[in-house]
Structure formats: C-alpha cells, structure tokens
Design a protein around this nucleic acid. Sequence first.
DNA 1: TGATATGTTATCTT
DNA 2: CAAGATAACATATC
Length: 291
Amino acid sequence: MPELPEVETVRHYLAAVLPGKVIGKVNVFSQKQFPQDPTLLQNRQIKAVVRKGKLLGLRLDHGQTLLIHLKLTGQLVYVPQLNRRQQAVLGHPLPFAGGNRLPGKSTRVVLYFGQPPGKEGALFFNDVRKFGWLRLVSDQEANAAMAKLGPDATSPAFSLAYFKKVLAGSRRPIKIFIMDQTKISGIGNIYANEALFRAGIDPRRPANSLRPAEISQLYQAIRTILRQSIAAQGTSAADDAYVQADGEPGHFQQQLAVYQRSGQACPRCGQPIKRIKLGGRGTFFCPHCQH
DNA sequence: TGATATGTTATCTT
DNA sequence: CAAGATAACATATC
C-alpha cells in the first residue's frame, strides 16, 4: 500500500533523477486515469518532485504541476535505459505489472524522456486496479489540492499540540481518525495499525477518550514508525504492488508487528494477534497489549 | 463463483 | 449544519 513512507521513497528517488529532464513522447493506455491531452506534457521540463501525505507532484516549467496519486496499487518506475523497441527489462518480475518488461499488462501511462523518445529514460505508471490518477494543473491548483490535506505526518506542522486539539473534537475510533487525510495526511491502514500497537492503544477507542500521556505515546509512535519505514524504503506487504521507483521492493514488512499477522504471536507478549473490522477495513491488534 | 482487499470521495444518515 | 457512516470505484486472488 503506498502510504507516506512508500510515496516518500518514490519521491526521493525521482527527485534525484527527474529534475532537468524534458518530457518527449507520452503514451496513455488508460484515459480514465489521465483524461487530458497527452501532448500538453510534451517538451515540458521537470523542475522538482514534491509530496504531501500520499499525494505526489512533478513540478514543471510554465507554472504547472503534474499531480499523481497511487491510491491502492499504483507504481511509478523509472528506467534510465530502454532498448530499441522502447522497452524496459528489469532484473526481476514486477509484482502486479505482469512480468519484468515495461510497458506491461498494467502499465497505464508512460512518459518518455529525451529525443529520440526514451534516450534519457522513461517513467512508467502501472496500476492494476485503476484507482490511481495523473492530473496536470496549475501550481495554484496543485497547492490548493495539497492545502486540503491535513498536515503531513512527518512535518513540523503535525505537532503534539495540534494532535491534541483535533483529537478532542472527535468521537470516532482512533484508528479511523488517524487515517483521515483531512486531519493528518500520510497514514493508511498499515501504519495506523502499527502505530497503535507501538503506543499500546486499542484501535476502537474514541479519539477524544485518549488521555494526555496516551496521545503523547501515539504521537511519538506515529513519528517513529514512519521514520523507520522510510529508512527501510517502505513496506511491500503480501499481495501488495508497492515497489520503489527502481522496481525493487521495500523492506519494512520484516518489521511489521501486527499488520496482516492475525493468529500469529504478538512480538511483545506472545498472545495471538486479532483481526477485526473497523470502518469496513481490516484492523489488526493485540488484545493483551492494547487498551 | 463470489467474497475480499484497499484510499478516497460522493452521498446518505444521524 | 456537521460529524459520522457507508457505497462506489476496479480487478486479481483465494
């Protein structure tokens, strides 16, 4: 699942290779996901790669930004060298993209860089479930879209004081609350479960029922988990399409304590991890350690 | 075969 | 009116 650490890992990689490159040919295989005229991107130079929460943006010249959301199964893979048929061959199969060749079965949009197309590499947007999207907007519109999101969970704007304030105003289950992108952006199902385990808090607790010490623990847990996952290049869980921008999986799945571990031993107490549904979503926790 | 998983948003309900 | 709950989206997998 591309959540904050996964999107940040992709952003970090792309920020090292894309700025300065000029978009040449653009292929759109799924119009629903990029409904605009592909030629609008032609001959445009990439200036920077930005992110807030799970939303990515390629800042272009002419005061425009290509916003990208990976949703559930989106992948952004950059390949520096293409063969004569404009194909990329990776060292190993790409989960959900249908093998190790790009474009593949689930490739939806391709941006080719340089002239002839692909001479300076290509960026492949793959997405099995077609929930992800690309949208070219003005910088102002991009800023507005990002302003609609709550403070990024890794930014200073997400302060303990802010967290206390917004929690006080909601009776929703704490797990659902911390996944609300308008309150805090970047936390999805994996890290909501992991942060609550680390903080020892039951995911069903009403947000406004947390005591100051618990809020503090959860705040620290969120920051720690996200930092550790970014350091591990994100989580490529079971049945998860997430890969880094070079096509390699992340490593944080090795450190997961509860996510997708129902029935297995809690790493702290050894009791089995339980799975319930909250807001229609899978929720994993240790009934013995989380209250 | 049909239930399941998932992030976000539109829409419905309280 | 606002907060909260739920359906819808797409598709591979079990």
